[in-house]
Write a protein that binds this DNA or RNA. Sequence first.
DNA 1: CTATTTGCAAACCCTTTGCAAAAAT
DNA 2: ATTTTTGCAAAGGGTTTGCAAATAG
Lengths: 136, 136
Amino acid sequence: MDNLQMLKNANLKATPQRLAILKVLKKHIHPNIDELYEEIKKENPSISLATVYKNLDTLVESKIAIEINTPNLKTKYDIYEHPHAHVVCQKCGFTQDLMDDVSNIVNHQSQLEQKIGKNIDNFSVVATIDGCQNCS
Amino acid sequence: MDNLQMLKNANLKATPQRLAILKVLKKHIHPNIDELYEEIKKENPSISLATVYKNLDTLVESKIAIEINTPNLKTKYDIYEHPHAHVVCQKCGFTQDLMDDVSNIVNHQSQLEQKIGKNIDNFSVVATIDGCQNCS
DNA sequence: CTATTTGCAAACCCTTTGCAAAAAT
DNA sequence: ATTTTTGCAAAGGGTTTGCAAATAG
């Protein structure tokens, strides 16, 4: 969906700052606040970090974005398009998408389902990834 | 295993502070630093928070304890006895153990295994838990 | 005796907050 | 015109660090 429309649907004012955040969220994979901020400043040098913080909170509240909490690292963000799960390396924070079919495998196990429910929004697996491509 | 022995095996000096931390880790489920600190102070009023921080790092490095990273909340700790996984509520941080057989279900899926490896130490699933007993 | 650990206080992040000015509708 | 949002600077909170004194082995 169009960024401007996403904001309108959520009753949020379409400020240049918000549009810039959405643009970067869609172009970069799982950025954290610093990566977002640096990227946005290229086109919008006067944006303040506090504004980025505030807007990320707002976007998450409105379910336009989601947070991916990572161990010891800054929270990462993703656009909430169709819900999908993430696998996060415990050591280095490297984050990968879990395809829908894979998360369904996890999700359809009855015992697991009891614990985590059927809701895979924001679902993330933090694990020691043998041979993580990023840290080993 | 005996707390004193665990420390000796890791070449760590058996200070009263460390023994106190281990004692509390074994008695309380998934405490965060504050819960640990408050509990330890009951018997060891002069311990400093910095010491608790330092020792938790040390214990995790020595694989005597593990960290459970939780969204928006303080890191929780657990004794590393036999490895097991955790399910953490995304909303409230409520943390449950995942029994070995359940984590094996997750673990033995070949696609998932490719991503997360066979190592279930420290494995945690952060998810929105429908009807979480703690937050709903 | 030597190396490690402790406790304190200060430093150091990162994130949030208050508020007046600016901008969106 | 009204309400929301921005940007700044300050405050806040959690964690880490440096160092001298204390302690474990």
